[in-house]
Design a protein around this nucleic acid. Structure first.
Lengths: 239, 239
DNA sequence: CAAGTACGAGAGCGGTGCTCTCTTCAAGAG
DNA sequence: CTCTTGAAGAGAGCACCGCTCTCGTACTTG
């Protein structure tokens, strides 16, 4: 087969896609816990055993959904930053955070799948790490552009920076061509990354019920604090 | 029956406790998804139907475990602050955060049960809200003691405070006798509360895999930033 | 002592993930 | 064009699950 895959492979990919779509629909309706292979097959007019030709187990189907969810969220974040550009880094920062929150609220079960309790096993399969890091990379890109403009401040809390916390993979990533962000800024960013999702998780998972009323206002305000924590300072008037 | 419950009630409570213990053991070993009523009953030498005399459904057993987990974590936080006192509020703040993180890392599946994806239904039962707020109340207590010492600073990020985000329940709580914390400090605290658990969740749920190596160092450093964000400033030399 | 009741056992229902076998059918090799 | 090979789906079946119902028993209570 050449660049154009044969009809058979195309059909196979289409069926796999239909299975994922139906599974995603059940996921959105009932949550990951109640997602059933048999129900998916039933809805698609197949018999349950046929489904195993495409996904070797329920966990593999879930993993595929996880990868898709990471990619959907990552694409959302990337689109947000593309739409506003990084010249005004404060605006870009807020736009990305807002887009991530919006996606999470619109897809609570998919969000729970990727940022809630890890459902299958305890170690995420290797093919989830790249999609999972897309949002973080977008945040890094915003910080990078601020740094290039010389507007990445040092933290104003003493002892907030710490050395040698980064894994080697990330250290290498930071040394890639085009990346000039100092290594000591990365831990701050990683912490803020986690804090951002903590904020969103509390809202999506209902921890703010009967505590916070106007969650959007709190989110918007806190996103500014997080930007400050990374070192971003209000964009100058020339932006 | 008087204050001392009859033998029958005592036996009933003991069996219910044994069921929860066994369930907790399976939870720790396999996770909430794989917790099975039949396996619990089998391990206890009963038949599965007998278990329904104590918990009307699997979800009810899970809810009981959730309440217990919230209480265990809450007690841990309370003990931490009792051990160091609130005179040195920075030390108290770090101690509480550290204790919560320690508990989470020691009980990952129980942590996932309460701060991961909500497993049963979407609305948490009413009897979980009080246990769930114990950690937040401890953090509030630390902030309160700093405020009494006149050491609760205003945020240094413009626009970080916002009005009318609090639910009425919390507003009432803040007006209880002995509570003098200004209402505008509460949203900051709520945001930091969520951010703290975001930090811990990323570590427990493996989001920091291949990203952050020395998670403890990053946590300790970030906890200081969070304290700063609440308004806590380093305790004076007279503490 | 008698009535009532809480408890455990057991069978059973419908559902699940997953495996195995069997048939069909279409693509590629000669 | 025939023949072979392999992939796809159907169906039965296994072990397990949550949950319900019934039935004997043992204990508490009036």
């Amino acid at each position: 087969m050449g660049v154009i895959q044969g009809a058979k492979d195309r059909a196979r990919a289409e069926v796999a896609c239909a299975i994922k779509d139906q599974a995603r629909r059940q996921l959105a309706a009932e949550g990951a816990a109640r997602l059933s292979l048999r129900a998916v097959a039933r809805e698609l007019g197949m018999v349950s055993s046929a489904l195993y030709r495409y996904f070797p187990s329920r966990d593999d189907l879930l993993t595929a959904l996880i990868v898709d969810a990471y990619n959907a969220l990552g694409a959302t974040a990337e689109e947000a930053v593309e739409r506003v550009g990084t010249a005004d880094w404060m605006r870009a920062w807020s736009a990305v955070c807002r887009a991530v929150r919006r996606w999470a609220l619109d897809h609570p079960h998919e969000y729970a799948l990727i940022y809630g309790s890890p459902v299958p096993g305890y170690a995420a399969p290797q093919d989830t790490v790249a999609p999972a890091s897309r949002v973080a990379l977008v945040l890094l890109e915003v910080a990078q552009s601020a740094h290039e403009a010389g507007a990445l401040a040092e933290p104003d809390v003493p002892g907030a920076d710490c050395r040698s916390v980064l894994a080697d993979d990330v250290r290498l990533l930071l040394r890639e061509p085009g990346r000039t962000l100092p290594e000591r800024a990365a831990p701050r960013l990683a912490a803020v990354w986690a804090q951002l999702f903590g904020l969103i998780s509390f809202e999506v998972f209902g921890q703010y019920n009967a505590v916070i009323e106007d969650r959007e206002a709190l989110f918007e305000a806190t996103v500014l604090v997080l930007a400050h924590q990374v070192g971003l300072r209000p964009t100058g008037p020339d932006a």
